[in-house]
Amino acid sequence: MSSNPISNSVNTKRDAPQARPALSAWRDWLGVIPFFLFVFLFIALPSFRLLIGSFQDSDGQFTLKNFADLMDPSILGAYWVTIRISLTTALGGGLLGFLMAYAVTVGGLPRWVRSALLTFSGVASNFAGVPLAFAFITTLGRIGMVTVFLKLLGIDLYDKGFSLYSFWGLSLTYMYFQFPLMVLTITPALDGLRREWREAAENLGATSFQYWTRVALPILTPAILGTMILLFGNAFGAYATALSLTGGFINLITILIGSQIKGDVLHNVGLGYALALGMVVVMGVMMTIYYFLRRRSERWLKQ
């Protein structure tokens, strides 16, 4: 037996795999099997199907026509409006959510406001689709309660150019689930800002503005970026809300895909696949930008 602690620890390391039979290694992985199953069945397989399908015509023959069709101005326009609405609601919801989370964490609001906001956010961030559209139609639709009420007060929203069934109307509706998601993800990050950082900054002569721009925001940036990409993806893939609100009046990519696959007059499955692949590409580009921004912003984080 060696009494040298270093050689001892080396020995233990070498012995470790033998001491643990293969069975127990299997057990370690057991819990994540559903995860891999899901990834395989509902991400890998469909993506593969998407890739193949986008190169096939309706008879299953190889073609590039689906991609040529993507260049159609109406389709490019649909991509553009989808990206715009995703960016708008990600930035808008992000800003709004940040301010609210700020108010209930760093700002000195009473505790119950915080629990109220967080509970609401938990619910609202999952509130989408037909119910959300319906809620907005009954409040801000042409004969919605708020619309009618404001009209009584002499303010005619729809006369002034507002429409729930427009780009901004849809953006407003999306905001309903966007900002709560920001609240949920950024609140823990704001809680993580230590009081001493603020005090140290002040003590060294920094104004509140300098503290936020040089200390707090840089520290929060990785979390903010992460949430932004989440919000973007959240809006980018939304379908039911837009469909039930505007009934296809605004041509989002998801709605286009829906109509290709569901099969009405426009039925063209191959084009649907190509459209979806286009979305994957857009998301991939966003993720790449995100990846580099995040890398830059968290050099100081323990890896």
């Binding site: 001493e196 005090e199 140290a200 002040e202 040089r214 200390v215 520290i219």
Partner: peptide
């Protein structure tokens, strides 16, 4: 506090994690 020009050292160090040593000192 930011107009007093007194220096403070905290129990928990309270260094700014996003800055290097030099940047912290120069802050």
């Amino acid at each position: 506090p930011n107009e007093r020009n007194v220096g403070m050292v905290f129990q928990s160090y309270a260094l700014f994690p996003n800055m290097t040593v030099a940047q912290n000192i120069g802050f």
